[in-house]
Measured scan of single mutants.
Amino acid sequence: MTYKLILNGKTLKGETTTEAVDAATAEKIFKQYANDNGVDGEWTYDDATKTFTVTE
């Protein structure tokens, strides 16, 4: 399945997608991606749209 991440960081904003077997796997990938890019904030997930959002 395709999952989407919306980044609302102070210095980085944008979107990315990943292919993952489930939401938990996608979350791990996205949290590593956000960490690698210096984004740390409040996480939400919308199962209907398979979208994670992180807001600093």
Rank of each mutant, 00 (worst) to 15 (best):
G38R: 06
K50P: 00
A20D: 03
D46Y: 05
G14S: 14
E42T: 14
K13E: 07
D36G: 06
K50Y: 12
E27Q: 13
A34N: 03
T53N: 05
L5D: 00
T55N: 09
L12G: 07
W43K: 00
N35M: 13
T44W: 08
D47L: 08
L12F: 15
A48P: 08
F30Q: 00
A26F: 01
G9S: 10
V21K: 14
K13I: 11
Y3Q: 01
K10Q: 12
A24H: 10
Y33A: 03
F52H: 02
T2Y: 12
T16F: 14
N35T: 13
A23F: 09
V54T: 03
N37P: 01
T44L: 07
T55G: 05
Y45E: 01
G38I: 04
T2G: 05
Y33P: 00
T55L: 06
M1P: 09
K4M: 07
K10H: 09
D46A: 05
D36F: 09
K13L: 07
T16G: 05
F30I: 01
A48V: 12
D46R: 04
T18N: 04
F52A: 01
V39H: 04
V54R: 01
G38M: 07
E15P: 04
I29L: 07
K31A: 06
T53S: 07
A48Q: 10
T51K: 03
T18K: 04
G9P: 03
A34W: 03
L5E: 00
L5N: 00
A24T: 09
V21L: 11
T16P: 03
F30K: 00
L7E: 01
Q32A: 11
K4D: 02
T49H: 07
A26I: 02
T18G: 04
Q32V: 10
W43L: 03
A23V: 12
V21M: 12
Q32W: 06
G38F: 07
K4N: 06
L5V: 04
A24M: 12
T25W: 07
V54K: 01
T44F: 11
G41Q: 02
D46P: 00
L7Y: 12
L5P: 00
E27R: 10
E56N: 05
G14L: 14
Y45A: 01
D40T: 13
G9F: 14
T25S: 13
T2F: 13
T18D: 03
E56W: 14
A24Y: 12
T17S: 12
V39Y: 08
T53P: 00
W43E: 00
T25R: 06
Y45N: 01
A23T: 11
A48W: 10
G9I: 09
A20G: 05
F30H: 01
V39E: 03
T49L: 08
E27N: 06
D22S: 07
V21T: 12
D46T: 05
K4P: 00
T11A: 12
E56R: 04
D36E: 11
M1D: 14
K4V: 11
Y33G: 01
L7S: 03
N37Y: 13
K31Y: 06
T18I: 14
A26S: 02
G41H: 02
E42L: 13
L12M: 13
N35Q: 15
A26W: 01
E27W: 13
T49K: 07
T18S: 06
V39I: 15
T49M: 07
T17P: 02
G38L: 06
G9W: 06
D40A: 12
T51H: 02
D36V: 10
N8W: 15
D22P: 01
T2E: 07
G9M: 12
A24W: 10
N37Q: 14
T2N: 07
A24E: 13
V54L: 09
D40F: 15
G41E: 01
T49W: 05
A34Q: 02
E19F: 15
Q32F: 06
N35Y: 15
